[in-house]
Each structure stands twice: as C-alpha cells, then as structure tokens.
C-alpha cells in the first residue's frame, strides 16, 4: 500500500514536470523541469531495485546532460528578447 502511494506520488511528479518541459515557453524553465523529471525517474529506479542505475542516472543526466543543456540554453538565448516582452506566440524566435 505504501509502495503504491509512493509510486503514485512520484509518477505524478514525473509526468507533471515532463509536461512542464514541453509546455514552458522559456527553454531555461524547461531545463529546470527536466532536472525535476530526471530526478523523479531516478526515484522510480530505486523503487524498481535498480539502485546502481539510479546513481548513474543522477550522475550522468543531472550532473552531465543537464549541465550541458543549461550551457546550451545560456549560449543560444543570449540575444533573445525576454519572455515578458515577447509578443505573439513567441515561436518565431524559436522558443
């Protein structure tokens, strides 16, 4: 019962943050939500008795991939207009 509750909680966290990744307009917010999603996926690995994979997930994804993605966000969004002044759907500038 406790395990089902934990699974439901972390599944909700995973799916909500994944929806945030694809729905937020600013890629920086998307990167932060991707971090939350990857960490909660690591919790799912622990619940599936894959502790080593959970550690590797945190190390490789959150420590490596997410840092690379945030570097790319910072390098490519430097000249963009801030989101509060963007008009329209903002997709023209690649957001």
């Amino acid at each position: 019962m406790m395990e089902t509750a934990a699974f439901a909680l972390f599944a909700a966290v995973t799916l909500t943050s994944a929806a945030g990744v694809v729905l937020f307009r600013d890629p920086w917010h998307s990167a932060l939500m991707l971090g939350v999603s990857l960490l909660s996926v690591a919790v799912h690995y622990v619940m599936l008795t894959a502790e080593f994979l959970a550690v590797i997930q945190v190390l490789v994804y959150v420590g490596g991939v997410l840092v690379l993605i945030s570097f790319a966000v910072m390098l490519t969004q430097a000249g963009e207009t801030p989101p509060e002044t963007a008009t329209g759907d903002g997709e023209v500038t690649g957001r």
Partner: peptide, 23 residues
C-alpha cells in the same frame, strides 16, 4: 515545438521512458 533545444529535452524524456520500461 520548433526550438532545437526543446527537441533535445523531449528526446531525453523519451529515452528515459524507454529505460523505465527496460528496468
């Protein structure tokens, strides 16, 4: 989405889904 960074993050999500299935 049309942002290439969003493509990359969405692909990360899909890869994670596959790994959850494997585990």
């Amino acid at each position: 989405r049309r942002n290439a960074l969003m493509f990359l993050m969405a692909v990360e999500l899909m890869v994670n889904a596959a790994v959850i299935n494997l585990v």
